[in-house]
């Protein structure tokens, strides 16, 4: 049962086509990356998923039924433009947002305390939001999106503006949530994160899907033909027929294999001549795939 299903969704603002024929599905227990350059239609797509705007054509299904506002209580949303009531105390704010998602005040407050501990911001609880740093406010907003234990978590650029420590904290939390069977969708333009985290992706550009599917499947479409080999000793194996070209930096070789070679023959040959400290067949990185798909339009 897919949690989210978009079919041929299209949205036009005045004269600009924001989203043009986008389709994808998100299954429970998956981490889904929505990728694309700025202005490509990521936020517009997300807003249609949660009913802030309605598509001009196409359909949005949440929890396997046509969009219905009642489903929104099962969705957690972190907007790209963060916003909290500045003058409000953190706990009041979290309880208020929890209540809007259908929680009762005592449950909301209990859960808020647990989450604040988890996100290491217990010292912020009695403070007013305006007294907090931007990163802290972002964590509060993150908690607000998760307080009601949503089955679908939608985060628009969740990592922007966080330091590496907090980004990791957030990342681990998202992985936990996926483990619990939640569907997580996040948008980003940072390829390294997507590569590590996502089970499936959808890359959009100019409102159109450029690349979409499970991560494994996408990667398998692109040949793994690069090898990194660290060695000491005789380098004569570098003339092996499976090698198309190579660069050797003092025993750290970057090798490009000829088409359809799998590198095992090369490894066997190398072992005969030299001592091998590292041998790795490199998968193409998402970034490389992007560049080969959309050219240099992606501002990663």
């Amino acid at each position: 049962m897919p949690i989210v299903e978009l079919q041929h969704v299209r949205k036009v603002y005045d004269t600009k086509v924001a989203v043009d024929d986008i389709s994808f599905t998100i299954e429970p227990g998956t981490m889904f990356g929505l990728l694309g350059p700025n202005g490509s239609g990521k936020t517009s797509s997300i807003r249609m998923m949660i009913g802030i705007t309605v598509p001009d054509s196409g359909t949005v299904q949440l929890f396997d039924k046509p969009f219905d506002r009642g489903s929104l209580k099962r969705v957690g949303y972190l907007p790209e433009e963060r916003g909290l009531y500045k003058k409000m105390k953190v706990m009041d704010q979290l309880v208020f947002l929890g209540q809007l998602h259908g929680l009762d005040a005592t449950v909301a407050s209990k859960r808020a305390h647990v989450w604040c501990e988890k996100m290491q911001i217990t010292e912020a609880i009695p403070k007013k939001t305006e007294e907090l740093s931007k990163g802290m406010q972002q964590k509060i907003q993150f908690i607000a999106a998760l307080l009601h234990d949503p089955e679908l978590i939608i985060m628009d650029e969740p990592f922007s503006g966080l330091d590496p420590v907090n980004a990791t904290l957030l990342q681990d939390t998202l992985i936990d949530l996926r483990q619990q069977g939640k569907a997580v969708l996040f948008s980003t333009h940072r390829m390294d994160q997507v590569e590590k985290l996502c089970d499936a992706i959808c890359l959009i550009d100019n409102g159109r899907v450029v690349l979409s599917g499970a991560m494994r499947e996408i990667k398998s479409r692109y040949p793994a033909n690069r090898v990194v080999l660290h060695f000491s000793g005789d380098d004569s194996f570098l003339r092996h027929p499976s090698i198309e070209s190579f660069k050797n930096y003092n025993g750290q070789a970057e090798i490009k294999l000829v088409e359809n070679a799998d590198g095992q023959g090369l490894l066997a040959e190398a072992v005969k001549h030299a001592r091998i400290t590292r041998f790795e067949v490199m998968e193409p990185t998402l970034e490389e795939i992007f560049i080969s798909t959309v050219g240099d339009k992606v501002d990663a």
Binding site: I50, G51, I52, R69, K73, Y77, P79, G83, L84, L100
Partner: peptide, 13 residues
């Protein structure tokens, strides 16, 4: 201006 509306609009009308 505080841009809280987007969170609110994701749950209420």
């Amino acid at each position: 201006t505080s841009r809280v509306f987007e969170v609110l609009l994701a749950t209420i009308r």
